[in-house]
Amino acid sequence: MSLKWLEWAQRLQAIAQNGFTYCQNPYDLDRYAQMRQIAAEIMATYTDVEPTFIRNLFEQEDGYATPKVDVRGVVFQQDKILLVKEREDGCWTLPGGWVDVGESPSNAVEREVFEESGYLTKAVKLLALYDRNHPRHEHPPLRHHVYKLFFGCKLLGGAPAENLETSEVEFFAQEQIPQLSLTRVVPSQIARLFEHYYQPDLPTDFD
Protein backbone atom coordinates (compact mmCIF):
# COMPACT_ATOMS: atom_id res chain seq x y z
CA MET A 1 0.00 0.00 0.00
CA SER A 2 1.32 3.43 -0.91
CA LEU A 3 2.07 5.68 2.06
CA LYS A 4 2.43 8.91 0.10
CA TRP A 5 -0.28 10.40 2.32
CA LEU A 6 1.98 9.87 5.35
CA GLU A 7 4.93 11.51 3.61
CA TRP A 8 2.76 14.48 2.58
CA ALA A 9 1.38 14.93 6.10
CA GLN A 10 4.83 14.72 7.70
CA ARG A 11 6.29 17.22 5.25
CA LEU A 12 3.42 19.65 5.76
CA GLN A 13 3.78 19.35 9.53
CA ALA A 14 7.55 19.92 9.29
CA ILE A 15 7.08 23.05 7.14
CA ALA A 16 4.49 24.37 9.58
CA GLN A 17 6.69 23.63 12.59
CA ASN A 18 9.67 25.36 11.00
CA GLY A 19 7.44 28.31 10.13
CA PHE A 20 6.30 28.67 13.73
CA THR A 21 9.95 28.50 14.81
CA TYR A 22 11.27 31.32 12.64
CA CYS A 23 8.32 33.41 11.47
CA GLN A 24 6.87 36.46 13.28
CA ASN A 25 4.43 37.74 10.68
CA PRO A 26 0.90 37.09 12.04
CA TYR A 27 -0.53 36.45 8.57
CA ASP A 28 2.11 33.84 7.80
CA LEU A 29 1.64 32.27 11.22
CA ASP A 30 -2.04 31.87 10.42
CA ARG A 31 -1.11 30.14 7.15
CA TYR A 32 1.21 27.77 9.01
CA ALA A 33 -1.62 26.98 11.42
CA GLN A 34 -3.83 26.10 8.45
CA MET A 35 -1.05 23.94 7.03
CA ARG A 36 -0.73 22.07 10.34
CA GLN A 37 -4.49 21.53 10.37
CA ILE A 38 -4.39 20.08 6.85
CA ALA A 39 -1.58 17.71 7.89
CA ALA A 40 -3.65 16.58 10.87
CA GLU A 41 -6.70 16.02 8.66
CA ILE A 42 -4.67 13.93 6.20
CA MET A 43 -3.42 11.68 8.99
CA ALA A 44 -6.86 11.48 10.59
CA THR A 45 -8.44 10.44 7.29
CA TYR A 46 -6.15 7.43 6.91
CA THR A 47 -5.84 6.41 10.57
CA ASP A 48 -9.35 6.94 12.00
CA VAL A 49 -7.95 9.23 14.70
CA GLU A 50 -9.57 12.58 15.51
CA PRO A 51 -7.85 15.52 13.74
CA THR A 52 -7.88 17.50 16.99
CA PHE A 53 -5.91 14.77 18.76
CA ILE A 54 -3.29 14.67 16.01
CA ARG A 55 -3.07 18.48 15.83
CA ASN A 56 -2.51 18.61 19.59
CA LEU A 57 0.37 16.14 19.19
CA PHE A 58 1.84 18.26 16.42
CA GLU A 59 1.60 21.38 18.58
CA GLN A 60 3.77 19.72 21.23
CA GLU A 61 6.65 19.69 18.75
CA ASP A 62 8.74 22.85 18.59
CA GLY A 63 12.02 24.02 17.14
CA TYR A 64 13.33 23.04 13.72
CA ALA A 65 11.71 19.76 12.62
CA THR A 66 14.20 16.87 12.37
CA PRO A 67 13.88 13.05 12.43
CA LYS A 68 13.79 11.30 15.78
CA VAL A 69 16.54 8.76 16.60
CA ASP A 70 15.82 5.15 17.56
CA VAL A 71 18.67 2.79 18.55
CA ARG A 72 18.63 -1.02 18.49
CA GLY A 73 21.20 -3.33 20.06
CA VAL A 74 22.37 -6.30 17.98
CA VAL A 75 23.80 -8.94 20.32
CA PHE A 76 24.87 -12.40 19.15
CA GLN A 77 25.77 -15.47 21.18
CA GLN A 78 26.66 -18.80 19.56
CA ASP A 79 25.10 -17.86 16.21
CA LYS A 80 21.89 -16.65 17.89
CA ILE A 81 20.52 -13.10 18.12
CA LEU A 82 19.12 -11.49 21.27
CA LEU A 83 15.43 -10.54 21.14
CA VAL A 84 13.00 -9.28 23.78
CA LYS A 85 9.23 -9.71 23.88
CA GLU A 86 7.29 -6.45 24.04
CA ARG A 87 4.43 -6.29 26.52
CA GLU A 88 2.69 -3.73 24.31
CA ASP A 89 1.96 -6.07 21.39
CA GLY A 90 3.24 -9.48 22.52
CA CYS A 91 5.79 -9.62 19.68
CA TRP A 92 9.58 -9.75 19.62
CA THR A 93 12.20 -7.14 18.77
CA LEU A 94 15.79 -6.14 19.22
CA PRO A 95 16.21 -4.29 22.53
CA GLY A 96 16.24 -0.54 22.00
CA GLY A 97 14.30 2.71 21.98
CA TRP A 98 14.58 6.50 21.71
CA VAL A 99 17.85 8.32 22.34
CA ASP A 100 17.47 10.78 25.20
CA VAL A 101 18.54 14.42 24.90
CA GLY A 102 22.15 14.77 26.02
CA GLU A 103 22.87 11.06 25.48
CA SER A 104 25.23 9.64 22.87
CA PRO A 105 23.85 6.90 20.57
CA SER A 106 26.30 4.29 21.88
CA ASN A 107 25.41 5.04 25.51
CA ALA A 108 21.73 4.96 24.62
CA VAL A 109 21.88 1.53 23.01
CA GLU A 110 23.92 0.06 25.88
CA ARG A 111 21.40 1.48 28.35
CA GLU A 112 18.42 0.18 26.36
CA VAL A 113 19.87 -3.32 26.03
CA PHE A 114 20.46 -3.50 29.78
CA GLU A 115 17.06 -2.06 30.72
CA GLU A 116 15.11 -4.33 28.36
CA SER A 117 17.12 -7.55 28.62
CA GLY A 118 19.33 -7.47 31.72
CA TYR A 119 22.52 -7.95 29.69
CA LEU A 120 25.56 -5.69 29.91
CA THR A 121 27.03 -4.85 26.51
CA LYS A 122 29.51 -2.61 24.72
CA ALA A 123 28.57 -0.97 21.41
CA VAL A 124 31.38 -1.76 18.96
CA LYS A 125 30.10 -0.99 15.45
CA LEU A 126 27.29 0.87 13.71
CA LEU A 127 25.91 -1.86 11.44
CA ALA A 128 23.12 0.10 9.80
CA LEU A 129 21.46 3.50 9.77
CA TYR A 130 18.02 3.13 8.21
CA ASP A 131 15.32 5.62 7.33
CA ARG A 132 12.27 4.05 8.96
CA ASN A 133 10.00 5.81 6.47
CA HIS A 134 11.69 4.33 3.41
CA PRO A 135 9.19 1.97 1.71
CA ARG A 136 11.70 -0.87 1.39
CA HIS A 137 11.72 -1.38 5.16
CA GLU A 138 7.96 -2.03 5.27
CA HIS A 139 7.36 -0.63 8.75
CA PRO A 140 3.77 0.28 9.67
CA PRO A 141 2.95 4.01 9.41
CA LEU A 142 4.14 6.30 12.21
CA ARG A 143 3.50 10.04 12.56
CA HIS A 144 7.20 10.71 13.25
CA HIS A 145 10.03 10.58 10.75
CA VAL A 146 12.58 8.26 12.38
CA TYR A 147 16.18 7.23 11.77
CA LYS A 148 16.96 3.75 13.15
CA LEU A 149 20.53 3.01 14.27
CA PHE A 150 21.51 -0.66 14.61
CA PHE A 151 24.62 -1.18 16.75
CA GLY A 152 26.60 -4.38 16.96
CA CYS A 153 27.17 -4.91 20.69
CA LYS A 154 29.65 -7.15 22.49
CA LEU A 155 28.14 -9.18 25.33
CA LEU A 156 29.95 -8.42 28.60
CA GLY A 157 27.78 -10.07 31.23
CA GLY A 158 24.48 -9.84 33.06
CA ALA A 159 21.51 -12.19 33.01
CA PRO A 160 18.07 -12.17 31.36
CA ALA A 161 15.60 -10.00 33.24
CA GLU A 162 12.14 -8.72 32.32
CA ASN A 163 11.00 -5.17 33.02
CA LEU A 164 8.00 -2.89 32.57
CA GLU A 165 8.32 -2.94 28.76
CA THR A 166 9.46 -6.51 28.07
CA SER A 167 8.22 -9.86 29.39
CA GLU A 168 10.72 -12.36 27.93
CA VAL A 169 14.37 -12.40 26.86
CA GLU A 170 15.86 -15.04 24.58
CA PHE A 171 18.48 -15.75 21.92
CA PHE A 172 17.15 -17.11 18.61
CA ALA A 173 18.77 -18.90 15.67
CA GLN A 174 18.09 -17.38 12.25
CA GLU A 175 15.63 -20.12 11.29
CA GLN A 176 13.72 -19.75 14.58
CA ILE A 177 12.92 -16.02 14.60
CA PRO A 178 9.49 -15.54 16.28
CA GLN A 179 6.76 -13.09 15.28
CA LEU A 180 8.36 -9.65 15.19
CA SER A 181 7.04 -6.31 16.42
CA LEU A 182 7.01 -4.69 12.98
CA THR A 183 6.79 -1.19 14.42
CA ARG A 184 10.29 -1.76 15.78
CA VAL A 185 12.04 -4.23 13.45
CA VAL A 186 11.15 -6.16 10.29
CA PRO A 187 12.33 -9.60 9.03
CA SER A 188 14.53 -8.17 6.25
CA GLN A 189 16.48 -6.19 8.84
CA ILE A 190 17.03 -9.25 11.02
CA ALA A 191 18.22 -11.19 7.97
CA ARG A 192 20.65 -8.42 7.08
CA LEU A 193 22.01 -8.33 10.63
CA PHE A 194 22.79 -12.04 10.43
CA GLU A 195 24.75 -11.26 7.25
CA HIS A 196 26.73 -8.68 9.22
CA TYR A 197 27.38 -11.30 11.90
CA TYR A 198 28.72 -13.86 9.43
CA GLN A 199 30.59 -11.21 7.40
CA PRO A 200 31.97 -8.79 10.02
CA ASP A 201 33.87 -6.77 7.42
CA LEU A 202 30.70 -5.58 5.70
CA PRO A 203 30.45 -1.78 5.66
CA THR A 204 27.71 0.09 7.49
CA ASP A 205 24.35 0.07 5.67
CA PHE A 206 22.44 3.31 5.27
CA ASP A 207 19.08 4.62 4.01
Results as ranks from 00 to 15, higher is better:
Ala9Gln: 12
Pro203Phe: 09
Tyr130Asn: 12
Thr93Ile: 03
Trp5Leu: 03
Leu57Tyr: 07
His145Leu: 15
Met35Pro: 03
Tyr46Lys: 09
Thr66Asp: 14
Arg87Ser: 08
Glu50Val: 06
Asn18Glu: 06
Thr21Gln: 12
Pro187Arg: 12
His139Arg: 10
Val169Ala: 06
Leu149Ala: 11
Trp5Gly: 02
Ile190Pro: 10
Ala40Ile: 00
Phe53His: 13
Leu3Trp: 00
Thr183Pro: 00
Asp28Gly: 13
Gly152Ser: 08
Val124Gly: 01
Ala161Tyr: 05
Leu180Asn: 08
Ala159Ile: 09
Arg136Trp: 08
Ser167Val: 10
Asn18Phe: 00
Ile190Cys: 07
Arg184Pro: 00
Leu164Ala: 10
Ala9Ile: 08
His137Tyr: 15
Phe58Ser: 11
Lys148Met: 12
Thr204Ala: 07
Cys153Pro: 06
Cys153Val: 09
Ser167Tyr: 02
Leu126Gly: 04
Gly152Asp: 08
Gly157Cys: 04
Arg87Ala: 07
Arg132Gly: 05
Tyr198His: 13
Ile190Ala: 08
Ser117Ile: 08
Leu29Tyr: 05
Val146Asn: 01
Ala173His: 07
Arg55Ala: 03
Lys125Met: 05
Phe150Glu: 02
Ala44Tyr: 04
Val124Arg: 07
Gln77Asp: 14
Gln37Ile: 11
Thr47Ala: 09
Ser104Thr: 15
Gln78Val: 09
Ala123Lys: 03
Pro178Asn: 03
Ala16Gln: 04
Ile81Thr: 06
Phe151Ser: 01
Thr52Met: 12
Glu116Pro: 03
Ala173Leu: 04
Val71Tyr: 02
Trp98Lys: 14
Asn163His: 07
Asp131Ile: 07
Ala108Cys: 09
Val69Gln: 14
Ser117Lys: 05
Arg143Trp: 10
Pro187His: 08
Val99Trp: 00
Val169Ile: 14
Tyr27Ser: 15
Val109Gln: 02
Ala108His: 00
Ile38Lys: 09
Val69Tyr: 11
Glu59Asp: 14
Leu3Thr: 10
Asp30Met: 13
Phe172Glu: 04
Phe151Asp: 02
Glu175His: 14
Ile190Thr: 12
Val71Asp: 02
Arg136Leu: 13
Glu115Asn: 08
Ala191Gly: 07
Gly96Gln: 04
Glu170Tyr: 12
Ala123Gly: 04
Tyr32Phe: 14
Asp28Trp: 15
Phe150Asp: 03
Pro51Val: 01
Val74Gln: 05
Ala40Thr: 00
Tyr27Ile: 14
Asp205Phe: 01
Gly152Lys: 11
